[in-house]
Amino acid sequence: MATMTLLGAINHTLEQQMEKDETVVVYGEDAGFEGGVFRVTAGLQKKFGKDRVFDTPIAEAAILGSGVGMAINGLRPVAELQFSGFMFPGYNQIATHIARMRNRSRGKYSLPMVIRMPYGGGVRALEHHSESLETLFAHIPGLKLVIPSTPYDAKGLLTAAIKDNDPVVYFEPKKIYRAFKQEVPEEEYEVEIGKARVVKEGSDVTVVSWGAMMRETLKAVESLKDEDISIEVIDLRTIAPMDSETVVESVKKTGRFLVAHEAVKTLGIGAELISRVNEGAFFHLEAQPVRVTSPDITVPLPKGEHHFMIDAKRIAHEIKKLANFE
């Protein structure tokens, strides 16, 4: 057992999977020699060589489109996009090919590929470096989308993603890349894709979050420890396919539901979760479901970002209101 940051766990997992499976290749803009702008892939090129760990031209469509070809022809590509805000030139490949190849070839070609990208705000970055674009991936049939919030899950989900025979989009919450360390087992293990985790059991309110906002949610819950509220906390971990069951069962027990996410409100993942809560636990609800999200505006530049990002204080405030609603 070693203690690792979330970033360290990703690096360790890539190394482990590349050791175990010679068909795994890692590539992207600056992902080779330099080890990526965040150093997530640091040391891999030195260890595995330039064929398996390589720098690409600045060309997101080529990064993802070539991944389609590699996956079809015997490799397991792990592509890195430098920031989720720059994925749009490659989105054509994601929506028109990556998500569809298995279906459109009636199972002849599957795409065992992983698309990694750092996402989210709160790091005082430049324009286009802070978006949370979960919905744009979760809305496309054929894609899976996972978001770890801990080093342990970062490893387990990435291992599962690399071994998956279907394409998996892997969001990395860059705000918490190095925020804390956790014990991570050395040996290989998987965290099942499509399975949420009940982080803390409770009976009064169900709170769902993921990624960097999971951290804020836990801080919020901690700040409410002296209140008389029993909070059940769920880390969704996989956005698509969504684990409705865990969420719905929890709401049946608590009758109150709150979702906290960093993405903007309209048609966010929170909206989908509430639909599922309504479908599955409507008659158990004691209050209207609550969404704590960013507003429907363009992510402001750093000086205004605090008005955009949700945080522990806001989540705690809304949990309290929801718990006290009669």
């Binding site: 469509a61 489109g65 070539s66 389609v68 070809g69 022809n73």
Partner: peptide, 17 residues
């Protein structure tokens, strides 16, 4: 146009494998 990148990827796999 999107097929050109698929071809590149297949060729990449052919080369390194």
């Amino acid at each position: 146009g999107s097929q050109i990148n698929h071809a590149a990827g297949i060729a990449y796999a052919s080369k390194i494998l």
